[in-house]
Design a protein around this nucleic acid. Structure first.
Lengths: 320, 320
DNA sequence: CTGTTAGCGCGTTCAC
DNA sequence: GTGAACGCGCTAACAG
């Protein structure tokens, strides 16, 4: 495997000159350029990018932590991040955690080891102090409200949007409202739960633990929700669903069971993914692609930490 | 940022000794080990992985080329690859192409540049000669039948499985059968189309261009299919659908339009994703996670090229 | 415009 | 057990 020195020798120039043509520097005579290019072709030369990385102290790699890569929510987020990365000539290292802390720590370690220039965490598990402790190693960006932390973030105000949704359902006459959520421990989930409890308190509605369905991520989880609903004697009349996929699953199963939507059960969802349009689901749009782009932008900002709130948009269709 | 030399100095040992404790080598006295560890802690030392990569000529990074990362098919494939990667202490570099050739070439370039140790292409766009030309730079693994090529592959015999599905529909009494497909130019798609045309020929059925729906990837594309179906005077009575998501979209829209499934339109799908179970869709299971694991395994095999066919499994439910 | 040379941070003989 | 010294391939002053 020929290296830059070999090429320099074969082309009768110095390594610097070779390096210059490699990087499209000006100030190299046309003849030498062609001589170098010739030699590179002849010896099938390819630059060793690791040497470049070492030399520059940069890898043009950004780590992205997601719990699952096969979920539309993270899929869209990834798409946004990937698009921005491409524009900036960066590559992405995907770190799928399945919500296991070890893997998230590994991602943090990659930043320490300088294997990646920055880290975007789409859904955090580990403690804040661990994150902040690593922030000296490079930019860390979160997709949750981190305004009181020393790392950048792009986020949705889930307290606000959940409250907005609850009020909308209330105005439509609903007083028995439940909600579905993915994992309950995340910051976003806690904000939502706080909004929910405050709503109940404001209207002096009683808290029904059975009205909260956790572990809801995918279409098939919506199926389970309806299953549980059928077992209940005092069912909610409306459901706030934190994912269009789950909402689609619920609507589908309701149709099978003869539960009329929205007459017997109103469904209000989040994200505004294509499936919600097809199934006429009323939803709160979260511009995930845009969020992804912003996240990447913040990752590029270096030391400078910033926080950006992304507004949601109400999309009324036929399930409320 | 302290480097190995600094640590050596601070601990009063040589860089070799530091390197040894870094890599858990034997033959280092306990005292020196602790001295080194102490120094590393004190100066918040972290090894620069790029230097390791350069020195070793390996990155423990494998590139994965996918057209989109937000599709369940590739999601599951990725999950399989990621799982295997984790077990082998490898990380993944995600290269999303959106089916643009440039991006695929970039991935090939990463292999040339030694930024990744191997490359897995989940859906190829560029010419075979380009792929084979790069195979000298490191293992390249494909997810399509590449038995006549000089790169490894794990694949489904789509000709066989499509034929199987068509025969099943035929036995159920269908003679007007159409199919949906993603992009038409891929190897897998061509195999399917060949199977389709051979089936028509065998039964002397005429070829109806309108029976083939391309560009079908997601749930919402199923919606479009039904839309087109409604415009046709001579509709197919059965549809082979190459993705559960699309099938789910079709079934959903059919219900809305009062098209009975399977009475008016039989749907036979592929993949056996969770959504197909919820919606009772008859499908041909493709064990994508397993495929992903095999792909990664082949990527690790180095020079040794191999080809592995993965069998599909017939899952009868209620849409045929 | 061009070449010399000193790093970048770590692994690894090979003597001691 | 230990360390000096060289090599990995490339970049970037600096000197011309």
């Amino acid at each position: 495997m020929a290296n830059i020195r070999d090429i320099a020798k074969m082309a009768g120039v110095s390594v610097t000159t070779v390096s210059r043509v490699l990087n499209n520097h000006p100030y190299v005579s046309a003849e030498k350029v062609s001589a170098v290019i010739e030699a590179m072709k002849k010896y099938n030369y390819h630059r060793n990018i690791n040497a470049v990385h070492l030399s520059k102290g940069k890898t043009f790699l950004v780590g992205v932590v997601v719990p699952f890569s096969n979920h539309p929510y993270f899929g869209l987020l990834l798409e946004g991040i990937a698009t921005a990365a491409l524009e900036n000539n960066y590559k992405l290292v995907l770190i799928q955690t399945n919500y296991e802390e070890d893997k998230e720590l590994e991602a943090l370690k990659m930043l320490e080891d300088k294997q990646i220039d920055a880290l975007i965490i789409c859904s955090r598990i580990c403690e804040w102090n661990l994150i902040e402790g690593c922030s000296a190693n490079g930019p860390i960006v979160l997709c949750e409200d981190a305004r009181d932390k020393r790392v950048s973030s792009t986020f949705i105000d889930h307290y606000k949007s959940f409250t907005m949704a609850l009020n909308f359902l209330y105005k439509k006459g609903h007083t028995k409202i439940g909600y579905t959520i993915g994992r309950q421990s995340g910051t976003n989930s806690k904000q939502r739960d706080a909004a929910y409890k405050d709503f109940l308190k404001r209207h002096t509605f009683s808290y029904e633990p059975g009205y909260i369905f956790s572990g809801c991520f995918n279409f098939e989880d919506g199926d389970q929700v309806v299953e549980k609903l059928l077992q209940m004697k005092n069912r909610p009349t409306a459901l706030l669903v934190t994912s269009d996929q789950v909402a689609a699953g619920i609507v589908t199963r309701c149709r099978e069971q003869g539960i009329l939507v929205p007459e017997n059960l109103a469904i209000m969802s989040f994200d505004n993914q294509p499936i919600s349009k097809v199934m006429h689901i009323t939803t709160l749009e979260i511009p995930l692609v845009e969020v992804g782009k912003k996240l990447f932008g913040q990752a590029m900002k270096g030391e400078h930490v910033s926080h950006e709130e992304i507004p949601v948009r109400f999309i009324e269709r036929q399930t409320v």
